[in-house]
Amino acid sequence: MQESVQSSDILLRELDDLGVLRLTMNDAGRRNALSEAMLMALAAAFAEAGVNPAVRVIILAANGPAFCAGHDLKEMTAGRADADRGRAYFTKVMAMCSGVMQAIVNCPKPVIAEVTGVATAAGCQLVASCDLAIAADSAQFSTPGVHIGLFCSTPMVALSRNVADKHAMEMLLTGDMISASRAAEIGLVNRTVVIEELRQATMEMACKIASKSSMTLATGKGAYYAQREMGLSDAYAFASGVMVDNMLARDAEEGIGAFIQKRAPAWRDA
């Protein structure tokens, strides 16, 4: 049985019995651009999912030919009519967008991007911000800001944390579109599949992760992103403390006991 929730037409929500929450961007007419409305819907959805114990894994998908075309440039351009030529408005929108990207990283639930079509600029940033990504083999990715005199500086933050410097700089400096297979080669996505198998492949990964202890997943995801920003010595000191606390958790005790006794663990998510 599935619970279908539609808080707004722009972002559809579907939560199944296994705890997999599917968030589907549904603004195909604007190529699922990160308009103010879309950013607000995404921010609210990730905030709610993060504290909902029924949600174990989140899939971020999209309807239409584009996964996400980045910022809504028509909406942004309208801000130039303000007395400050749009500075306050641009600052507000960039803060909203950065907030959504950080909400994905900070969400205790694993987030998987299911990518069809194109993901450009902040749309590519959205993919890079997710913990995992599976793409249709027809999907394409780019950070094309240089073509219009606007360097993709905020997408650069997520991109540079996913792929090696030379690959990130090539995308940022040329603005060229890359194929799904190339995105997999450089680590922007985990794998590619034919589009007919995309939803199934994403669900298989989501269900595999959802079967684990949610406490363990939250501990691991939070620790991963925290240690990444540290030096080697500090990272090991931090991770060692996390391991000790994790060892004392009930689910670690249960999981280790189940492994020794050769039985399936009964998670309590604690």
Rank of each mutant, 00 (worst) to 15 (best):
P53M: 05
A54W: 00
V55D: 00
R56G: 04
V57F: 09
G64N: 04
G64L: 04
F67V: 13
C68V: 04
H71P: 11
D72L: 10
K74Y: 08
T77L: 14
T77F: 15
R85Q: 10
R87I: 09
A88V: 14
Y89C: 01
K92L: 08
Q102Y: 07
I104Y: 07
I104H: 05
N106E: 06
K109H: 13
K109A: 15
V111F: 13
V111M: 07
V115N: 11
A121H: 11
A121S: 15
G123P: 01
C124T: 09
L126P: 00
V127K: 00
V127F: 01
V127I: 02
D131R: 09
L132K: 06
L132E: 07
A136L: 08
A139T: 01
Q140W: 02
T143A: 15
V146W: 09
I148M: 12
G149S: 02
G149C: 02
F151R: 12
S153P: 00
V157F: 08
A158Y: 00
N162G: 12
N162Y: 03
N162C: 15
A164M: 10
K166I: 14
L173H: 11
T174S: 15
I178K: 05
R182P: 05
R182A: 12
A183M: 04
A184D: 05
E185C: 15
